[in-house]
Design a binder for these strands. Structure first.
Lengths: 354, 354
DNA sequence: TGTTAGCACTCGTATGTGGAGAGTGCTAAA
DNA sequence: TTTAGCACTCTCCACATACGAGTGCTAACA
């Protein structure tokens, strides 16, 4: 009696249920649809269609005498096949572009502000992951002695290592240096490392610096332990991916999260930044927007959420991920457009300022 | 009938009410105190004393037939005069020190980890404010051309400016540079600026670089517009204070915040990092611990919270603020000890690694 | 065969009531 | 001045009831 593929009427009704549920967060009844989306059929017919949709697993009833609520499968079908991309208004586009364009030099600032932009425009949680540096190419290394007194450093000192990557990302950290390395030794090491290592990925450089034989080849000479240790330390930045989140408090406006026991697991998870990073970064950097719905998210606390994300780039390289976390009941077409547009705007910022 | 100063019994009872309320978050009755803190007097006597404390404004009743709850004034008296500092256990001290000691080079990482340590040990919100740099002394400036091709930069390029401050804090940002400045000009500017500006505060340097006459005196020559603009840009880092928070979800375990309308204003406020910074940084850097109780906090959302904070230093200079935000009902003596000890441990980390 | 109207049924939500318990203030006795 | 006893108050919880929204089913209709 029901064709297995979705016929026109089923699609219409499913879409109506999803749209209506998005606005009210309450189960949608047949009468409601008849009133709001007068599609030329009566409530009774809609009821029949809804029963069909339920059989297919696209909608469900919270209790036997309630209206219908979309299931995750229903949302998946909607996102994959029914939804048409919502064009952002020019006003919104301008808003995003202006705020992105006003972001200034500091790399941290860009990350922080972009997550704020995303959250404010989507009214959900905006997030930005910092770049994974291991695959980045070294463009320039600068070693700046800090403690050394004018070339005769008699005491154990420290060196500020500044790593400039091809993508424009700058990373600096402080390296302790054995006292038998004078400032001019450091300068020599700096010159050699720049000559030999620029153009290689950080991952490759770390491999090389962990192998004493490789290092010897680079320096083309016997090496003191101090130089070996120093070189290793220079490139051993503990590269964790950082996550910037903004707008978590927007969830207080979401009716389905009003109860504390719904909110708590989510907020606990969001504080474990490393888990969020793990949730999102290992995906191969497929271009384009990804949508993860409800319990497709493997972490506890995210069962009632969906994630829409994309990646941002600079000079063609994938740098990191940006996206939005919202409730499963989410205007996907709009959020997809927001994330997509913001990712592009942010990529432009990186290309221009870094 | 009641002496205006707090006599011994009133102090005992007030302390008992506060301690008991800290644990249960429920109004404390006279019988409860008699049972738990057998202080040799009957419930009826305690009732009389409680009535006196209520008259003084130190405790109150949520409703006429309930037990007593400490008021903010009561907490203030407790913190200022009754409370004795709680010594942390050696285990806790070790825990803090170990985790602080394991913090590595990256300045951002230290900030982030310290707020996490504070929140985990206190079970409340830990926060760390980044240094206000304007009063920091410049130790070293390094200008690193990025785009220039081997001394003949024919196109408009960019320079990475690395500012190393006396406190050990490193700040870098990217400066656009007019195409008529060659790499060797940049090196010259770098040398001169280091000669003339090292040892001055960032605030002073910014004053100088905004005054063309001052700049001319520094460079001891006529200046092209390019050099003037470049010098200004080099030192014009938009220095906002950053706030790192951790442990907000601990508030889900606090009974008085279980209702959403209690939680929401707080979380909304916490996301406005700039307001938090304003709340805490303008205080003159008085040494020692500060405790701000309940509505003494001027921002909406903090009425039910208290803040315990102190500052961290490096080489004698005040760098920033660290502290804990918890509910007004808070074991102040313990939290004060935690913040105090962590501030010291963090200061040591800064002195050693930066 | 597909669609519509009518109707009985179900179940969640809101509302109201009563009793138990905790804690007080007051009074009178020690 | 302290204590015991007692009446009073107020909150909280459990239970029952009424209401309403929405369904599935059946029968009539195009």
């Amino acid at each position: 009696m029901t064709t297995s593929a979705l016929d026109y009427r089923k699609r219409e009704v499913l879409e109506a249920i999803i749209e209506c549920y998005n606005q009210t967060a309450a189960p949608v009844g047949s009468r409601t649809i008849e009133r709001l989306y007068g599609m030329g059929i009566s409530a009774a017919t809609i009821r029949n269609t809804m029963a069909d949709l339920e059989e297919l697993g696209y909608v469900t009833q919270p209790h036997p005498s309630a209206g219908r609520v979309p299931t995750e499968i229903g949302y998946r079908v909607y996102v994959d096949t029914l939804m048409e991309a919502e064009e952002l208004s020019n006003k919104e586009k301008l808003l995003i572009q202006e705020r992105c364009a006003s972001l200034e030099g500091s790399y941290e600032g860009i990350i922080e502000q972009t997550s704020k932009i995303l959250s404010e425009i989507s009214h959900y949680i905006g997030f930005v992951l910092t770049p994974e540096l291991h695959d980045s190419i070294l463009r320039r290394l600068e070693l700046i002695p800090i403690d050394g007194d004018k070339d005769n450093s008699a005491h154990r000192g420290r060196v500020l290592a500044v790593l400039l990557m091809a993508s424009g990302v700058v990373k600096n950290h402080i390296v302790s240096v054995s006292k038998d390395l004078a400032d001019k030794d450091i300068r020599g090491i700096n010159r050699i490392l720049n000559e030999k290592l620029v153009g290689l990925s950080l991952r490759r450089i770390q491999q090389i610096s962990h192998d004493t034989a490789d290092l010897r080849a680079i320096f083309d000479t016997d090496l003191s332990d101090s130089i070996v240790a120093f070189t290793r330390d220079t490139f051993s930045l503990n590269q964790e991916i950082h996550v910037h989140l903004d707008g978590a408090s927007n969830f207080f406006s979401q009716p389905e999260f009003l109860e504390v026991d719904k909110m708590e697991p989510l907020f606990r998870l969001l504080e474990q930044k490393d888990r969020i990073a793990g949730l999102l970064s290992p995906q191969q950097p497929t271009s384009g927007i990804q949508v993860v719905i409800g319990s497709e998210n493997k972490y506890e606390g995210m069962e009632m959420c969906s994630v829409v994300y994309s990646c941002y780039t600079s000079h063609g390289d994938v740098l990191g991920t940006i996206g939005v976390i919202g409730p499963t009941r989410m205007p996907y077409s709009r959020v997809v457009s927001i994330v997509d547009f913001t990712a592009q705007a942010m990529s432009q910022v990186f290309e221009h300022t870094l």
